[in-house]
């Protein structure tokens, strides 16, 4: 009986202390919480509401039910923008992961000047998108650009890249690979966590370089690769800045670089169809959510979390 009373008293004392700590914690985090509620949660819920209205940023709005969502199905530009988004995503995501992985493995070797190389490869990812887009406009110039000049050395007459509806999307994919520094760094950190003794044991067992990569490196890197895949999927559907800068917000030529986020922006701020744009945003959200859940469902059992 006495033991129970002591336990209750301790819990009360702990609770009082805990509540005190909790309140102070709330106080210190309140700027972030208020910011989150006001600048994220409120606009999020407001956009959900507006997606059922004919809201035009100004003045009043009318409740139109599911009309915006229904209109999306018959809007061929919306489907084209989704196709362009998926096209760029499907090519750039695996390519970006492969290039990051290759660079990370190269940078995981012991060579002289490694710190310098790491810095250099990371550098492009901190260059502002606008600045890098300007540079890539030079790179892709059909007549004066470095890319076509290199191609001409090996006898290939390079395409018009950004001025060609056929090549503009591949051009954006190539440009996207340039900024893989962040992912490279994450994978490099993952590679440095792989125990050396496992490689040694595999070598003793006669495993070649490919087998060591396949059966030692990849399992250890699998959580990092899953992270890359999921964040890449989300970023891919939200892709906006580079095509906006390179096309002056038009998505040309002939709608070939009009990606979903750009079309959404045009509707919101150019055509004053904020309600319609909100509906687009929520459809994109559902697509991203579905892709993410699917990715987790398919891959979660294949991920190796060390000793877990």
């Amino acid at each position: 009986m006495a033991a129970i009373s002591l336990k209750q008293a301790t819990r009360r004392r702990w609770s009082a202390q805990g509540r005190h700590n909790f309140l102070w914690g709330l106080f210190f985090t309140s700027p972030a919480i208020i910011g989150l509620l006001w600048f994220t949660l409120y606009p999020l819920l407001a956009s959900l509401y507006y997606s059922f209205t004919s809201y035009a940023i100004f003045g009043s709005y009318k409740w139109i039910g599911l009309q915006n969502y229904a209109d999306l199905f018959s809007d061929d530009t919306w489907w084209i923008s989704l196709y362009n988004t998926v096209y760029i995503l499907v090519l750039s995501l695996p390519l970006g992961i492969l290039v990051s992985l290759a660079l990370a493995m190269l940078l995981n070797m012991q060579v002289r000047g490694l710190a310098l190389y790491r810095t250099i490869f990371y550098l492009p990812s901190i260059v502002p998108v606008v600045a890098s887009a300007v540079v890539w406009a030079y790179v892709f110039n059909p007549q004066y650009g470095i890319l076509n000049n290199i191609l001409s050395v090996i006898g290939i007459n390079g395409p018009g890249w950004l001025s060609s509806p056929t090549w503009s999307k591949p051009a954006l994919v190539i440009m996207g690979v340039w900024g893989t520094g962040n992912l490279m760094l994450i994978l490099l950190a993952g590679l440095q966590d792989v125990p050396q003794e496992l490689y040694d044991a595999a070598k003793v067992d006669g495993a070649g370089a490919w087998s060591r990569f396949r059966h030692v490196t990849v399992p250890f890197l699998s959580p990092h690769l899953l992270f890359a895949l999921v964040t890449g999927l989300i970023a891919g559907f939200q892709y906006f800045a580079a095509p906006y800068v390179l096309t002056g917000g038009e998505g040309g030529p002939a709608r070939s670089t009009l990606i979903a986020a750009l079309y959404l922006y045009q509707n919101a701020f150019r055509f004053f169809r904020m309600g319609y744009a909100s509906a687009m945003a929520w459809v994109l959200f559902v697509i991203i959510l579905a892709c993410t859940v699917l990715t987790f469902r398919i891959l979660s059992r294949r991920i190796y979390y060390g000793g877990a």
């Binding site: 606008v130 110039n141 007549q143 890249w161 001025s163 503009s168 096309t247 002056g248 040309g252 030529p253």
Partner: peptide, 9 residues
């Protein structure tokens, strides 16, 4: 401003 897509020349 950067050039625009479709505006190589």
């Amino acid at each position: 401003s950067p050039g625009q897509v479709g505006s190589a020349g």
